[in-house]
């Protein structure tokens, strides 16, 4: 049921036009942070108001929306955002990556390869990759303008000096089309390769920091590294205990008072789809739906 007290997808048309203009600019300059006038949303900033505003500006009544948080559709954050758009836009929702036309995400890229026509919207807490070493906004803007990115490697240098390897495992910095250095939001670096050459349109929204940036389909995205410390997209060295997947990103879960652990796909839709297809992991049982199908 659409709540008639609100405009379609909550934001008024003028605000959506303003956000769409920022999105168009962002798509035209891949990896470049476009300022936009972020609006108050009926949820706290930590809940991804940047992503919510981008999603609101992209949604049409025909869209099918999926919302994930750390790969899962059923966390509080994902459920509230999904409900929010069901109520304010009346759009169809889904948990299936393949069936969704718009996917809003926090901290993950779905395992299932995205296809042309899909839009992936990222919630971004801190859009500025240079912030860590250079707190002055005027200076970081100048550094982007002049492609002065030596500092990004100073950060990676510090990592190796301190930990013997590049220890950055989330929000791992990338260079877009050989030009802008970009923070891919706190996705695990395991997901970085999926940023590059994706058939989907990828949009990034930072609400508190009022920035939007984008990767149009088939954009070249390279993770920064050193010649002698090349980028490696690591994950836990296990198979999924439920579906047996060997190449999906895993969460470690404690399953009893003795501290026994299991590894499961962080992408719940991916895991369930595999189980429905009959794949079974070390601790898994064949899926009911799978048995019926």
């Amino acid at each position: 049921m659409t709540d008639q007290a609100y405009n379609f997808a909550y934001l008024d048309e003028q605000t959506k036009r303003m956000i769409r203009r920022a999105l168009l600019k962002a798509v035209a300059i891949p990896g470049y942070q476009v300022p936009f006038a972020s609006r108050e949303m009926p949820m706290p900033y930590g809940w991804g108001t940047g992503g919510v505003q981008v999603t609101a500006a992209c949604l049409t009544p025909d869209d099918v929306l999926k919302v994930i948080d750390q790969g899962a559709d059923d966390t509080t954050n994902a459920v509230s955002i999904r409900k929010f758009f069901q109520r304010t836009a009346g759009v169809e929702v889904t948990q299936s990556t393949a069936l969704a036309s718009v996917i809003q995400t926090r901290h993950r890229i779905p395992e299932t390869a995205l296809s042309a026509g899909q839009i992936l919207v990222y919630q971004v807490p801190i859009p500025e990759p240079l912030r860590f070493l250079e707190p002055r906004e005027t200076e970081t803007r100048k550094m982007h303008e002049l492609e002065e990115y030596g500092l990004m490697h100073v950060k990676l240098y510090e990592d190796i000096a301190r930990h013997g390897q590049i220890a950055t495992s989330y929000a791992y910095p990338v260079k877009v089309e050989g030009r802008y250095v970009m923070d891919p939001s706190p996705i695990p670096k395991f997901d970085n390769p999926k940023l590059s050459g994706s058939a989907a349109l990828q949009l990034f929204g930072a609400g508190r920091e009022q920035r939007i940036y984008a990767l149009p389909p088939f954009t070249d995205v390279v993770s920064l590294d050193f010649d002698d410390h090349p980028f490696t997209p690591t994950k836990a060295n296990h198979d999924c205990d439920l579906c047996g997947a060997s190449a999906s990103y895993l969460d470690e879960v404690i399953i009893d008072d003795q501290g026994s652990r299991m590894f499961v796909c962080s992408d719940t839709d991916f895991c369930e789809t595999r189980r429905e297809m009959g794949h079974v992991g070390r601790l898994g049982t064949p899926s009911n739906k799978g048995a019926q199908a």
């Binding site: 030596g150 500092l151 490697h153 100073v154 240098y157 050193f226 010649d227 002698d228």
Partner: peptide, 16 residues
Amino acid sequence: GGNVGERLMAVGARHY
């Protein structure tokens, strides 16, 4: 080390 290395990296050094 990072302080000394910064200028090297600023001009393109990429070998840790």
